[in-house]
Amino acid sequence: MSETPFTPTEPRLDGLDERIIARTGTPGVVTRMLRFAPGLDTTANGTLAHDFWEEVYILDGEITDLRLGKTFVAGDYACRPPGMDHGPWRAGDAGCLTFEVRYSADTI
């Protein structure tokens, strides 16, 4: 996995990069790591909602959901159903690294 590079996310935001670990089909499943640079604020990307399920596990660092005013730390887990609003985010002083699995409702 370490040979797989981190690349900028879409929409692009300096300091927000992803490493795609696995991808299958359309619709399908995407497994990725998401890396937030220290202090990164994603307000420019606004609040997000997807048409797929998203499970997130924080591996390292911390991140604050600015809309909720709640900080999540390494070891925290979230499962977001399709259409759930989340973010924008601000990463902690050490940044944040997450492990995510995204999948269509059609795949479960």
Rank of each mutant, 00 (worst) to 15 (best):
M1S: 12
M1F: 12
T4E: 11
P5L: 13
P5W: 10
P5A: 15
F6T: 14
F6S: 11
T7H: 14
T7K: 15
T7S: 14
P8A: 15
T9K: 12
P11C: 14
P11V: 15
R12P: 14
L13K: 11
L13G: 10
D14K: 13
D14V: 15
D14M: 10
L16N: 02
D17W: 05
E18I: 13
R19Q: 09
I20M: 07
I21S: 07
A22I: 09
A22V: 09
R23I: 06
T24D: 04
T26G: 05
P27Y: 02
P27A: 05
V29Y: 01
V29L: 11
V30E: 03
T31K: 00
R32I: 01
M33Y: 03
F36M: 00
F36R: 00
A37W: 01
P38R: 00
T42K: 00
N45I: 01
G46A: 06
T47Q: 04
D51I: 02
E54H: 04
E55V: 10
E55Y: 08
V56K: 06
V56H: 04
Y57N: 06
L59D: 08
I63G: 06
T64W: 04
L66Y: 10
R67K: 13
L68F: 05
L68W: 04
K70V: 15
T71F: 08
G75W: 08
D76A: 15
A78Q: 14
A78D: 08
C79P: 01
C79Y: 06
C79M: 13
P82H: 10
G83W: 10
D85N: 12
D85H: 12
P88M: 11
P88E: 09
W89R: 11
W89P: 04
A91F: 10
A91Q: 07
A91S: 12
D93T: 13
G95F: 03
C96M: 05
C96W: 00
T98H: 01
F99R: 05
V101F: 00
V101R: 02
Y103S: 04
Y103L: 09
A105G: 03
D106M: 03
T107D: 04
T107G: 01
I108D: 05
I108N: 03
